[in-house]
Structures are given as structure tokens and as C-alpha cells.
Amino acid sequence: MAINWFKYSSPATYYSLAGKLIPIFTVAAVLLAIAGLYIGFFVAPTDFQQGEAYRIIFIHVPAAWMSMFLYLVMAFWAAIGLAFNTRLSSMIATAIAPTGAMFTFLALWTGSLWGKPMWGTWWVWDARLTSELILLFLYIGFMSLQAAIDDPRRADKAGAVIALVGVVNIPIIYFSVNWWNTLHQGASVSLTQSPKMASTMLLGMIIMSLACWMYAIAMTLIRSRVIILERERHTAWVAELHEKEAA
């Protein structure tokens, strides 16, 4: 049974498919979040070194992973949109950007809130926090470029170029910030992570990451549907769609 992938690349069929998928992902996100938080707060033991403050890890690490992962997925769809000229893939890339930016902001916010009790200051020029901040600038650059261009086709392609240039630069930025950070104040206190983590902590974090992932998918589907409605205003199927909803 050869799956005809291009069937779903037309906005109309994608619109209905996304409509069916959104409830599934939303419910999955909510359930996983509840499970993750329950494990994080009620099952995971108190950390011997950091006391209770480490529980921020259950939102900080998933947000950081998601921010990086979503940028790569966004660049992937932008590249597909640029290469195959499929409007829908660029719309998905545009739909991912705000959620990715939100996760980056959350990672920074929770990171600095966690840094306060552990390192004593709200902001430490730690290599990870700094490259996360630069990632936020990349997201903002992408979104503001797309917002500044009126013609959607040019906005998609221009956004794709800046996303791809950004993706090439992420390892370079991370490497140079790491080099720069260790040069200045020596390796800063690293968060107690992976090797010595109790299994329940790890489990809680994994589940929370899955929850964030489901949420990101649901959010992207919802926003891509709205973008489709905005861009396909003139088409017939959108018109009669509105009749149905209005009626």
C-alpha cells in the first residue's frame, strides 16, 4: 500500500487531517503532563544536594530540549518548503516558530530561577544559558523577518534562508560560547544531571519532555490551520468552510 504522501500536502486535506489530530495530541499532552508532574513532585525523592529546588528540572530541561528540537524541525520544514516549493511546509515552519520561541523563553526563565538558589545570581554567563539566549535571538530574527515581508511566498522563502543559515550556525555558536565560557571563569558549576540522577527523576523528566512534545505538535497543528485560513482566504473551500461554521 503505497502511501501517497502528497495527498496531505494540499492545504485542504491537511486542514481536515490536522483537525482530527489536534484533540488526540492535546489529550496526550495533558495526560502526560499530569503524570510527569505527579512523578516529579510526589514520587521523586528530595535531592540530597539541592533540596527541593531541583524540581524545576522537570520543566527546565524539557523546555531546553524542545527549544533546540523545534528549531531543527522548523529548519527542516523550511528547507522542504524552499526545495519543493510546497506552501504548506513553509506554513508549518511558520507555525512552529512561536512555540519554539516560547520554549526558549521558558528554558531561560526557569534556568535563571533555578540558578538563583544554586549559583546565587539570576543570570550566570554559563555556556548553555548564553547559547539558549542566542537561540532566542535566532527565533526572534526568523519571526520578525517573516512579519516584515507582506508577500507570503517571499516571507516563506526568506524565512527559510535565515532558518537554514541559523541552523548551520547553532553548533558554531554553541562551540564558541563553550570555549569562551571555559576561558573566562573556568567550568561553572554544572547542574546535577544524568549520571547520578535517581531513576524516578529521569522518568519524570522523560515524561515531561513527551508532554511538551505532544503540546508542541498540537500547538503547531492549531496554528498551521489558522495560517491556512489566513492565506487561503480567497479559495472556495475556505469560503464554504466559514459558511458551515457560521451556520
Binding site: L145, A148, G166, N169, I173
Partner: peptide, 23 residues
């Protein structure tokens, strides 16, 4: 090249290019 002919292009260029200048 990306911000050619855009209104407010000057500020936008800096937003796009500064993160890439950091290394």
C-alpha cells in the same frame, strides 16, 4: 539581501545578523 526593499529593513538586518556575528 534578505531585507532588500523592506520598510524598517535597517533594524531588521541587525536582528538577523547579530546572532551570527557572535562567534
Amino acid at each position: 539581501a534578505l531585507t532588500l526593499g523592506l520598510r524598517g529593513g535597517g533594524v531588521l538586518v541587525s536582528l538577523l545578523v547579530l546572532p551570527l556575528y557572535i562567534p
